[in-house]
Amino acid sequence: MTARVAVVLFPGTNSEDETQRALAAAGIAAEIVHWSRGSAALRAFDAFVLPGGFAYEDRVRAGAVAAHDEVMDAVIEGAQAGKFVLGICNGAQVLLEAGLVPGTGPLRRPTAAFAPNAGGKFLSVHVHVRLAVAPERVPLLAGLAAGAVIPAWASHGEGRLAAPATELDLLERDGHAAFVYCNARGEPLPAPNGSAREIAGLTNRAGNVLALMPHPERDGWTFMHRDGDAEKAAARGNAQAMLAPSGGAIFFQAFAAALNATVRTR
């Protein structure tokens, strides 16, 4: 049985194509589903991916309007039933505003925020993020190695995790802080956006929902790596190597492996 994955598109989403391609490269034929099709169109899917961009122009707050959209009813129901839900960048903001991550409060009453970056400016930089919890804490990425380092591009104006100190303590203590910013060797690095505790990604209590601010799909093929990258340099003149999945691709490969294993056991 093949997993059915919906890439959920809100008005203003702009990363659905590369997200769908990254999933395809990992062996998942995902379908892009427009928000206007409503919850009914989503319920048959096994998993949901909310890609990056802007949802409803990020009016009121990034992710806030989309979090209350009717189509999110199916995403919330699915998450509560144990389906995998992945949000990247704006998708992460939507999941947080929907209360699905960290999931420490009521639905649609966020206990944390992806607030405007420190310095108030849009950020577009290459980053690395490290899996900061045991792989088994996040079943959605169960195939990742402990401490896995994922290259990605951070591209956001509101990616600074902010929350009261007591909530941040809880997030770290209970393993909600799934990914942190780091260097290429996985060593701690200050978050480029000022994110609290250097947190780049959050998961819920069950580990079936993940919100990640940077974009692994934008560094998922060799040609996408930043200039100076050794793998990219070695691939010059070799189109096949340049177009091969690498870097951030391991994130989607882990997601696909975990998802297929889950669907097979149903």
Binding site: V60, A64, E97, R109, P110, T111, A112, A113, A163, P164
Partner: peptide
């Protein structure tokens, strides 16, 4: 305000 216009975690 509490349920939509303001995210009380940072506002």
């Amino acid at each position: 305000t509490e349920s939509f216009l303001c995210n009380l975690a940072f506002q």
